[in-house]
Amino acid sequence: MTIAVCPGSFDPITLGHVDVVRRARSMFDEVVVGVATNSGKSALLDVDARVELARTALAGLDGVRVERVAGLLADFLRVNGANAVVKGLRGGADFDAELPMALMNRHLAGVETVFVVGDPALAHIASSLVKDVARYGGDIDDLVPPGVADAVRAAVGRKDGR
């Protein structure tokens, strides 16, 4: 059985993420979506909320499960018996950011990274942009799976003291 891990902070999960997971599932028997904490970022949504939103967004996809990554991705890969890491790319900047991580995961866990080119219709969607649009009261409903926009708007309101 081939198992791929699709890791990310998913803060929040977007339609671009769902697209990459759906296409990864067509290549692997199972896809484990690993919701991680990025020490270099300040998350809007806590990790438990991100896990639940991802589970809801991906509930209709057979062979996909969502788990929290508590430590090193390399350890998570080993525990889950992963054959590959899957990462979506929107452009060259994404590749430049992902390449060192792919090499480190191969070094630490012996697992290769497969890059999936994102759907051009979704290439403008990034979690950071979704949060920025929401902070300024813009409509994000068509950028994220159902239910996610409400969670983001609520979190933005809490962070802004509203």
Rank of each mutant, 00 (worst) to 15 (best):
V21R: 01
A155K: 05
L99R: 01
L44G: 11
V47G: 05
E112Y: 00
A155F: 06
D150S: 14
A154F: 13
L77E: 01
V31K: 02
V85K: 01
R68L: 14
A74P: 04
G34H: 10
A121P: 01
T113D: 02
L15W: 12
L103G: 04
R68E: 15
L77S: 03
V86Q: 02
N38G: 13
R106S: 04
D46R: 04
R135V: 04
G63C: 12
S42V: 14
G81V: 06
E30G: 07
R23M: 07
R22E: 10
D75P: 00
T56Q: 12
I13R: 02
A97G: 08
V32S: 00
A82K: 01
A24M: 05
I13S: 09
A82E: 01
H107N: 07
V117I: 15
G88R: 04
L122Q: 09
G40C: 03
I140F: 08
D142A: 15
A97E: 06
L77N: 04
V69H: 05
E67N: 00
L108T: 03
N38I: 09
A93L: 11
L77R: 03
F28S: 04
V133K: 03
V47H: 02
F95M: 12
L122K: 10
V130S: 09
A4D: 02
G91Y: 03
S127R: 03
I125E: 07
E112H: 06
A154L: 14
V133F: 07
T56P: 00
D29M: 08
P145C: 09
V156H: 02
V32N: 00
A151E: 06
K131G: 09
L53F: 13
V18S: 11
T37K: 11
P7S: 15
S26Q: 11
V33D: 04
L99K: 00
A155W: 05
V133D: 05
R65M: 09
I140K: 03
A57R: 04
N80S: 06
A54Q: 02
L77F: 10
K159P: 00
L15R: 15
D94N: 07
R135E: 10
N38K: 08
M101L: 15
G157R: 14
P12I: 06
V85R: 00
V79F: 00
A57V: 14
P146G: 11
P145V: 12
G91S: 12
L53H: 05
G8C: 10
T2A: 14
V148I: 11
A134R: 03
F115P: 03
I125R: 04
P120L: 12
